[in-house]
Deep mutational scan, measured.
Amino acid sequence: MAAGGDHGSPDSYRSPLASRYASPEMCFVFSDRYKFRTWRQLWLWLAEAEQTLGLPITDEQIQEMKSNLENIDFKMAAEEEKRLRHDVMAHVHTFGHCCPKAAGIIHLGATSCYVGDNTDLIILRNALDLLLPKLARVISRLADFAKERASLPTLGFTHFQPAQLTTVGKRCCLWIQDLCMDLQNLKRVRDDLRFRGVKGTTGTQASFLQLFEGDDHKVEQLDKMVTEKAGFKRAFIITGQTYTRKVDIEVLSVLASLGASVHKICTDIRLLANLKEMEEPFEKQQIGSSAMPYKRNPMRSERCCSLARHLMTLVMDPLQTASVQWFERTLDDSANRRICLAEAFLTADTILNTLQNISEGLVVYPKVIERRIRQELPFMATENIIMAMVKAGGSRQDCHEKIRVLSQQAASVVKQEGGDNDLIERIQVDAYFSPIHSQLDHLLDPSSFTGRASQQVQRFLEEEVYPLLKPYESVMKVKAELCL
């Protein structure tokens, strides 16, 4: 049975990233139509530049190519590739079939990587351009969430054990800070992308030097003109047959890092959902379990974690691919890159769409948070109580021993009897502590235990987050809708 299948058929496997999760716009960027249309555009740009620099290419040939950029006979191309065992030459023939007058000058002087690699770089750039505003929107939604809850005390956790208090907004800023680093890295790697350009079979530009009869300047002009037509500021000066596969490492490393950030955020949300302090959106008709109707599973956060793990592992592909590119190139890269580049971007696209949807509907339960604080705060307040007693004339050592005994009794009630923490009640009825009984409410005010959390939130948002989001103001209103 021949390899390949009808990918629109229910009898043929289709990647869930495309069929179930990723956005239509990201799927289109990695589609065959987008790819092969870009090949034709690159052939047109090459012909236009070659004509401008004096090669015998007519206006009629150029116009014929322009008129057929979208006229792609995919069936013919597939048949040609089956016959020739070469995808680029299959599309040269297919393009030439609908451009008979231009057929002889299509791909003039070029090698397969002229269309293959340059198209990949265009796709990487455009895919990054799709991700950047999506990530900015996630940051914006979380920034709104953090600002609104900047002063809401909550129990902090280290080692997932109760620690000092923080605020809900401050905790959210930990998430935002990681995503801001990801946004900066995505922008950097996007701006650092260079075009492969017009380089020939081993990167020496020998074929173009021959076409222009040894004119170095025209060869350099050709490279520059096509690079500018493709919208790049610069091209690699040095290439082998391909652009260095280190570029793929750079791009997928940034995406993998984004995956790590999203995994951490969504894990926190899942843990908070278990504590009943916070939940992701839950639709009115949504079913959490087929057997347990009360369940409210954090399905979206779980999906993000599941896909983020996949995204983090994909960076190993370009690392290994770059390491086995012998001399000017081997074909070890080809099949692998067809999979890992598309999957990385479709996965990143999915987790950003999902995280935006989550961040637009996060639900906080202040009463649950308050109750958990009441359970733990008495123990945390013991040092403040000791200091207040010393100020009232008591002995630190005597007070410490009193607190120690009462704390152990209260802990026994919590752990052995399943009761509430009654340390404060014990202190309130103990005559030894009568000098500070009137101060206990103040000493137990949760806001006095959150330090500068709310001020940190305000400063972080104003100095770091809002300036970073400013270039994306025009796209901030787009909502994230999930079908599944």
Rank of each mutant, 00 (worst) to 15 (best):
D6G: 09
G8K: 15
P10A: 13
S12P: 06
Y13E: 09
Y13A: 13
L17C: 15
A22V: 11
A22H: 07
D32N: 14
R33E: 12
Y34G: 10
Y34W: 09
Q41W: 15
L42E: 04
W43L: 07
E48P: 00
E48Y: 04
A49M: 03
E50I: 06
T52E: 09
T52L: 09
L55W: 07
P56I: 11
I57V: 09
E64D: 12
N68I: 06
N71K: 10
A77K: 05
A77E: 07
A78W: 08
H86I: 00
M89F: 15
A90W: 02
A90E: 02
V92F: 02
G96W: 01
H97K: 13
C98G: 09
G104C: 12
L108D: 02
S112N: 04
Y114F: 09
N118M: 00
D120S: 06
L121P: 00
R125E: 03
L130A: 11
L130P: 05
L131C: 12
L131I: 08
P133R: 15
P133V: 14
I139Q: 05
L142W: 11
A143D: 03
D144V: 15
E148F: 11
R149F: 10
G156Q: 04
F157P: 00
T158H: 00
Q161G: 01
T167S: 12
V168G: 02
G169L: 01
W175T: 02
I176N: 07
D178W: 04
L186W: 11
R188Y: 06
D192K: 08
L193S: 06
L193K: 02
L193H: 02
F195M: 14
F195D: 02
G197T: 01
V198R: 02
K199C: 07
G200A: 14
S207Y: 03
Q210V: 11
F212E: 06
D216A: 09
H217L: 14
K218G: 10
D223E: 10
D223Q: 11
K224G: 11
K233R: 11
R234V: 07
D248L: 04
I249K: 04
E250W: 08
V251R: 05
L252T: 13
V254A: 09
L258G: 03
G259D: 00
G259F: 00
A260F: 04
V262T: 15
H263S: 09
T267K: 03
T267L: 08
I269V: 11
I269K: 00
I269W: 14
R270E: 00
M278Y: 06
F282H: 07
Q285E: 07
Q285G: 14
G288A: 08
Y294P: 01
K295H: 02
R296E: 05
P298V: 03
L307S: 09
A308H: 03
R309H: 13
T313Q: 09
L314N: 07
L314Q: 11
M316L: 12
L319Y: 09
T330Y: 04
L331E: 01
A335G: 13
R338H: 01
R338D: 00
C340E: 02
A342N: 08
E343Q: 13
A344N: 00
D349I: 05
I358R: 00
E360P: 03
E360K: 02
G361W: 07
Y365C: 12
Y365E: 08
V368C: 05
R372W: 04
I373H: 05
E376H: 05
N384E: 04
I385S: 03
I385T: 06
A388V: 04
V390A: 09
C399Q: 04
K402D: 08
R404C: 11
V405C: 14
V405T: 15
Q408P: 04
A410M: 06
S412L: 14
Q416T: 08
Q416I: 09
D420S: 05
D422P: 11
E425Q: 10
I427Q: 04
V429P: 02
V429G: 15
D430K: 04
F433R: 03
F433C: 06
L440N: 04
H442D: 14
L443R: 04
L443D: 04
D445M: 13
S447A: 12
Q455T: 13
Q456G: 05
V457Q: 02
V457T: 10
V465G: 03
P467D: 09
P467A: 10
Y472I: 15
E473T: 14
V475L: 14
M476E: 15
A480V: 15
L482P: 14
